[in-house]
């Protein structure tokens, strides 16, 4: 009986300290401590279904294989369409290297060669989806670009979340304001709302089905809704592995194979 009382006391202390820790954290600390790794960030290979949905709810589904490498030298991305048949074999290479102009190539199997394409995609649509290139890489709220204010906690997607209200500190930020729901126990966002300067909700990002990949939680279902256009893009992760990708992959030579 005495042991049971001691155990209850210990649990109460632990719980209180945990609540106290959660209550004490500032919005900026939560933002800085985000343990977020989107599926298309870091270095690795992923196979995914990419589903686009128009305002009438009509969907188009693509299967793609993506190789990624992101380090101090910059970001490299190699993407190959696996299905449907009308785009199968189309490949896309993007090099965003430090100190160099961004470069992109598109390989079209029907003509048997690559074409250089304009690299003005940052801030624009990623492969015709509702994601921008920065959003798909998870770089939508880089440290230093936003000030974070913490709002009252809420339950979102079945988990208790911190709620952050982010305000852009400079014009370089993609959005004027961002509202973010951060899973308290895992420090990962489960929902993000992007607002323009007038406070109008433009996009909503929902992340779920988190699974551990190489020690990090990676969402295996990612949905971006464009609230203005009424469109949605759904990413279903079929497989993902974090591994060092050879630089040879991110070359025109590999594109031609």
């Amino acid at each position: 009986m005495r042991i049971r009382k001691a155990l209850l006391l210990l649990l109460s202390i632990l719980l209180l300290s945990s609540v106290s820790y959660a209550a004490d954290r500032s919005g900026q600390e939560i933002l800085d401590d985000l343990a977020f790794s989107n599926v298309l960030s870091g270095s690795g290979v992923a196979e995914l279904n990419l589903i686009t949905e128009n305002a009438r709810g009509q969907q188009r589904k693509y299967s793609v294989k993506v190789y990624l490498k992101s380090d101090d030298a910059g970001d490299r991305q190699f993407l190959e369409y696996l299905s449907p048949a009308d785009v199968r074999g189309t490949k896309f290479l993007s090099l965003n290297l430090e100190g160099q102009e961004d470069q992109m190539w598109l390989y079209l199997p029907a003509i048997g060669r690559e074409r250089r394409i304009a690299s003005h995609m940052t801030g624009d649509s990623f492969m015709g989806t509702d994601f921008t290139y920065e959003e798909i890489g998870g770089n939508f709220a880089r440290s230093g670009e936003y000030s974070a204010e913490r709002l009252a906690d809420e339950v979102e997607g079945g988990v208790t979340c911190y709620v952050l209200d982010l305000t852009a500190l400079s014009d370089a930020a993609l959005y004027e304001r961002i509202r973010m729901w951060v899973w308290q126990t895992e420090n990962v966002p489960v929902k993000v709302e992007f607002l323009n300067s007038a406070g109008v909700l433009q996009k909503t990002l929902t992340l779920s089905d988190f699974r551990e990949v190489a020690g990090e939680l990676v969402p295996h279902s990612v949905v971006m809704a464009d609230n203005v256009k009424g469109t949605r893009t759904i990413l279903e992760i079929l497989s993902v592995s974090e591994e060092e990708i050879s630089e040879d992959v991110f070359t025109v030579r590999y594109l031609r194979r």
Binding site: E101, Q103, R115, R116, I117, A118, S119, H120
Partner: peptide, 8 residues
């Protein structure tokens, strides 16, 4: 081939 600004 290349890019000049936002144009290919």
């Amino acid at each position: 081939s290349g890019t000049i600004g936002s144009a290919g």
